[in-house]
Amino acid sequence: MSYYFAIVGTNDAPIYELEIGTYHQSGDGTPHLPKEIHELEQFIVNGSLDILQDAQFKSSSIFFKNIDSFYGYQVSAYLTQGNGKLLVLTDLKNHDESLRQFLIEINELYVKNLLNPFYKINDPIRSPSFDSRVRTLAKRYL
Protein backbone atom coordinates (compact mmCIF):
# COMPACT_ATOMS: atom_id res chain seq x y z
CA MET A 1 0.00 0.00 0.00
CA SER A 2 1.26 3.44 -0.91
CA TYR A 3 0.16 6.94 -0.14
CA TYR A 4 0.59 10.29 -1.79
CA PHE A 5 -0.09 13.04 0.70
CA ALA A 6 -0.41 16.73 -0.17
CA ILE A 7 -1.22 19.87 1.76
CA VAL A 8 -3.00 22.23 -0.59
CA GLY A 9 -3.08 25.91 0.25
CA THR A 10 -5.99 28.27 -0.03
CA ASN A 11 -4.93 29.09 -3.59
CA ASP A 12 -5.25 25.39 -4.53
CA ALA A 13 -1.52 24.96 -5.02
CA PRO A 14 0.32 22.20 -3.16
CA ILE A 15 2.54 23.52 -0.36
CA TYR A 16 3.79 20.19 0.93
CA GLU A 17 3.92 16.79 -0.75
CA LEU A 18 4.99 13.37 0.44
CA GLU A 19 4.95 9.96 -1.22
CA ILE A 20 5.19 7.20 1.35
CA GLY A 21 4.49 3.51 1.70
CA THR A 22 2.88 1.71 4.58
CA TYR A 23 4.81 0.65 7.67
CA HIS A 24 2.19 -1.93 8.58
CA GLN A 25 2.17 -5.50 7.26
CA SER A 26 5.99 -5.62 7.23
CA GLY A 27 6.21 -2.57 4.96
CA ASP A 28 9.30 -0.39 5.14
CA GLY A 29 7.69 2.88 4.10
CA THR A 30 8.83 2.69 0.48
CA PRO A 31 6.06 3.82 -1.88
CA HIS A 32 5.10 1.45 -4.70
CA LEU A 33 2.91 3.64 -6.84
CA PRO A 34 2.92 2.58 -10.49
CA LYS A 35 4.59 4.95 -12.95
CA GLU A 36 1.29 6.05 -14.52
CA ILE A 37 -0.13 7.06 -11.16
CA HIS A 38 3.15 8.56 -9.95
CA GLU A 39 3.35 11.00 -12.84
CA LEU A 40 -0.30 11.94 -12.62
CA GLU A 41 -0.72 12.02 -8.83
CA GLN A 42 -0.69 15.80 -8.53
CA PHE A 43 -3.31 16.13 -11.24
CA ILE A 44 -5.46 13.38 -9.72
CA VAL A 45 -5.42 15.11 -6.36
CA ASN A 46 -6.01 18.46 -8.04
CA GLY A 47 -8.98 16.93 -9.87
CA SER A 48 -10.52 15.78 -6.61
CA LEU A 49 -10.67 19.44 -5.51
CA ASP A 50 -13.61 19.82 -7.91
CA ILE A 51 -15.55 17.18 -6.02
CA LEU A 52 -14.43 18.55 -2.66
CA GLN A 53 -15.55 22.07 -3.54
CA ASP A 54 -18.94 20.70 -4.53
CA ALA A 55 -19.30 18.81 -1.27
CA GLN A 56 -17.66 21.10 1.27
CA PHE A 57 -20.57 23.51 1.77
CA LYS A 58 -23.20 20.81 1.61
CA SER A 59 -21.94 19.05 4.68
CA SER A 60 -20.77 20.17 8.08
CA SER A 61 -18.00 17.58 8.30
CA ILE A 62 -14.38 18.43 7.64
CA PHE A 63 -13.16 14.93 6.86
CA PHE A 64 -14.29 13.41 3.57
CA LYS A 65 -13.47 9.74 3.27
CA ASN A 66 -13.02 8.39 -0.28
CA ILE A 67 -14.36 11.55 -1.85
CA ASP A 68 -12.99 10.69 -5.25
CA SER A 69 -11.46 7.71 -7.00
CA PHE A 70 -9.26 7.10 -9.99
CA TYR A 71 -8.62 3.60 -11.28
CA GLY A 72 -8.83 1.97 -7.88
CA TYR A 73 -7.01 4.79 -6.07
CA GLN A 74 -9.06 6.63 -3.48
CA VAL A 75 -8.72 10.25 -2.44
CA SER A 76 -9.64 11.32 1.09
CA ALA A 77 -9.69 14.93 2.16
CA TYR A 78 -9.55 16.96 5.34
CA LEU A 79 -10.51 20.64 5.32
CA THR A 80 -8.65 23.02 7.56
CA GLN A 81 -10.42 25.98 9.13
CA GLY A 82 -8.79 28.41 6.71
CA ASN A 83 -9.92 26.45 3.61
CA GLY A 84 -6.62 24.67 3.24
CA LYS A 85 -6.89 21.00 2.27
CA LEU A 86 -5.07 17.91 3.37
CA LEU A 87 -5.41 15.29 0.66
CA VAL A 88 -4.38 11.65 0.59
CA LEU A 89 -4.30 9.43 -2.48
CA THR A 90 -4.04 5.74 -1.69
CA ASP A 91 -4.67 2.29 -3.10
CA LEU A 92 -6.01 1.15 0.26
CA LYS A 93 -9.75 0.84 -0.11
CA ASN A 94 -11.04 0.22 3.37
CA HIS A 95 -8.84 2.15 5.69
CA ASP A 96 -9.97 2.52 9.26
CA GLU A 97 -9.99 5.46 11.59
CA SER A 98 -6.19 5.76 11.37
CA LEU A 99 -6.22 7.93 8.26
CA ARG A 100 -8.55 10.41 9.93
CA GLN A 101 -6.36 10.48 13.02
CA PHE A 102 -3.31 11.04 10.85
CA LEU A 103 -4.95 14.01 9.14
CA ILE A 104 -6.13 15.51 12.45
CA GLU A 105 -2.58 15.41 13.76
CA ILE A 106 -1.19 16.82 10.52
CA ASN A 107 -3.70 19.65 10.84
CA GLU A 108 -2.27 20.45 14.26
CA LEU A 109 1.23 20.51 12.78
CA TYR A 110 0.01 22.73 9.96
CA VAL A 111 -1.62 25.18 12.34
CA LYS A 112 1.58 25.32 14.41
CA ASN A 113 3.47 26.01 11.22
CA LEU A 114 1.07 28.86 10.40
CA LEU A 115 1.83 30.42 13.77
CA ASN A 116 5.45 30.80 12.75
CA PRO A 117 5.97 34.54 12.14
CA PHE A 118 8.47 33.78 9.38
CA TYR A 119 6.00 31.67 7.45
CA LYS A 120 3.57 33.31 5.00
CA ILE A 121 0.37 31.50 4.16
CA ASN A 122 0.43 29.44 0.95
CA ASP A 123 4.22 29.44 0.84
CA PRO A 124 5.73 25.98 0.36
CA ILE A 125 6.62 24.28 3.64
CA ARG A 126 10.30 23.46 3.43
CA SER A 127 11.04 22.95 7.11
CA PRO A 128 12.94 19.65 7.67
CA SER A 129 11.45 19.27 11.14
CA PHE A 130 7.93 19.53 9.71
CA ASP A 131 8.80 16.86 7.19
CA SER A 132 10.27 14.51 9.81
CA ARG A 133 7.23 14.97 12.05
CA VAL A 134 4.92 14.15 9.16
CA ARG A 135 6.96 11.04 8.43
CA THR A 136 6.78 10.00 12.07
CA LEU A 137 3.01 10.41 12.02
CA ALA A 138 2.81 8.44 8.79
CA LYS A 139 4.84 5.66 10.40
CA ARG A 140 2.47 5.57 13.33
CA TYR A 141 -0.85 5.74 11.49
CA LEU A 142 -0.34 4.54 7.93
Binding site: T10, L40, F43, I44, N46, G47, L49, D50, Q53, D54, A55, Q56, F57, F70, G82, N83, I121
Partner: peptide, 24 residues
Protein backbone atom coordinates in the same frame (compact mmCIF):
# COMPACT_ATOMS: atom_id res chain seq x y z
CA UNK B 1 -6.68 39.28 3.25
CA UNK B 2 -7.50 35.93 1.62
CA UNK B 3 -9.54 36.30 -1.53
CA UNK B 4 -13.03 34.87 -1.60
CA UNK B 5 -13.70 32.32 -4.30
CA UNK B 6 -16.64 33.07 -6.65
CA UNK B 7 -19.43 31.71 -4.47
CA UNK B 8 -22.06 31.54 -7.24
CA UNK B 9 -20.02 29.04 -9.24
CA UNK B 10 -18.05 27.44 -6.42
CA UNK B 11 -18.14 23.66 -6.79
CA UNK B 12 -20.14 23.71 -10.00
CA UNK B 13 -17.30 23.09 -12.41
CA UNK B 14 -15.17 20.06 -13.11
CA UNK B 15 -12.45 21.83 -15.04
CA UNK B 16 -9.67 20.17 -13.04
CA UNK B 17 -11.03 16.76 -13.91
CA UNK B 18 -11.23 17.86 -17.50
CA UNK B 19 -7.54 18.83 -17.37
CA UNK B 20 -6.65 15.39 -16.03
CA UNK B 21 -8.39 13.61 -18.91
CA UNK B 22 -6.93 15.98 -21.46
CA UNK B 23 -3.49 15.17 -20.11
CA UNK B 24 -4.18 11.47 -20.38
Amino acid sequence: KLKMPPITTFGLFRSRKSILWMLM
